[in-house]
């Protein structure tokens, strides 16, 4: 199985400098804030991985780390069998040539001062010497593929619609063919009918360009429609990674269960009342312990990632040495 994985991430940790002001007498605040901790997953050929999580759980940070905007402090990223060293420029270029990204906000991600053509041209790596004519050819090819009419090429982002803007973002990400495309909530700011168009387009592109997606979203319908596997992110940690079907039918982690429950009750009754109290993420032990209905004594220790068949769960409930205690 490891042979066919294109991207293999293990133990990824990202932290930001803590900008909170220190209290005068309350002592120093922690210097670092860990945003992603012990993130491990792999993306196999022809597979779409979904990443779900609440706002602020680190979804976008993960995406930005994978294209080298942020640097991890520890962990390993292996792309096509090549270990990426974030300190090396060559490796970053390699990373960016193989992993593209589509940002969430279609307005902010397009420079208002450039025409659509110039925006798409940005996707062609600057250091690659390609004649202007070849560039123009690949630009018209990709814009054709994403369904932008050629008359839009000389327009400015302001004059095209939201759906078209997202198509431009896609074209920019794919004009230089990528192995993996990170989609950071690409449909969340579009209305439903446009969402459907974009999702269908993404499915079409997946087949025609044989690109693999990492789909970041908090919309379960999108997950169901697009993804094969799903990773549940909670405050910087993957609590469960499993196939979409498994997660829907039988979520293992209490948090995944809560998410699924919320989703299902919304689908059936249009109303959702959580039976769990919602607590802050815990700083010690299991990160979900403050909200978990199934917590027990062991949860004060950080749980290991436990592989169970083709899924991975980070919860003491499934620990095999449970019997000892």
């Amino acid at each position: 199985m490891k042979d066919e994985s294109i991207l293999n991430v293990s133990g990824l940790k990202v932290r930001f400098r803590n900008r909170e002001k220190r209290g005068f007498l309350t002592g120093a605040a922690e210097k670092w804030k860990v945003v992603l901790d012990d993130i491990s997953f792999s993306v196999n050929e022809g597979e779409t991985l979904g990443i779900v999580g609440e706002t602020g759980s680190g979804k976008s940070t993960l995406a930005r780390t994978l294209v080298g905007i942020y640097r991890p402090v520890s962990g390993e990223v292996i792309l096509n069998g090549k270990r990426i060293d974030y300190g090396k420029k060559v490796d970053l270029v390699y990373l960016r040539n193989n992993i593209g990204i589509v940002f969430q906000d279609p307005i902010g991600s397009l420079n208002p001062r450039l025409t659509v053509r110039e925006i798409v041209r940005e996707g062609i790596p600057f250091n690659r010497k390609i004649s202007r004519k070849e560039q123009d050819n690949s630009i018209s090819e990709i814009t054709d593929l994403v369904g932008l009419s050629s008359s839009k090429l000389d327009e400015f982002p302001e004059t095209i619609s939201g759906g078209e803007k997202q198509r431009v973002s896609l074209a920019r990400a794919l004009v230089n063919r990528k192995k993996i495309l990170l989609l950071d909530e690409p449909t969340s700011s579009l209305d439903v009918s446009i969402q459907a168009q974009i999702l269908n387009l993404l499915r079409k592109l997946r087949e025609e360009l044989s690109v693999n997606y990492i789909f970041i979203t908090h919309d379960f319908n999108v997950i169901k429609y697009m993804c094969d596997r799903i990773a549940v992110l909670y405050y910087g940690q993957f609590l469960e990674v499993s196939s979409v079907q498994d997660l829907y039918e039988n979520p293992f982690h209490p948090y995944s269960a809560e998410l699924m429950n919320a989703n299902l009750t919304l689908e059936t009754s249009n109303k959702f009342e959580s039976q769990y109290e919602i607590g802050e993420p815990s700083r010690e032990g299991c990160i979900y312990v403050n909200s978990c209905p199934k917590r027990f004594s062991k949860c004060s220790l950080p749980p290991p990632s436990i592989p169970l068949g083709n899924r991975v769960v980070k919860c003491w409930l499934y620990s095999s040495d449970d019997a000892k205690n």
């Binding site: 294209v67 080298g68 905007i69 270029v93 990204i101 969430q104 420079n111 925006i119 940005e122 600057f126």
Partner: peptide
Amino acid sequence: RRPYIMASELSGL
């Protein structure tokens, strides 16, 4: 902070 600046950075400018 605009994503388009990030996009430019990613293309190696």
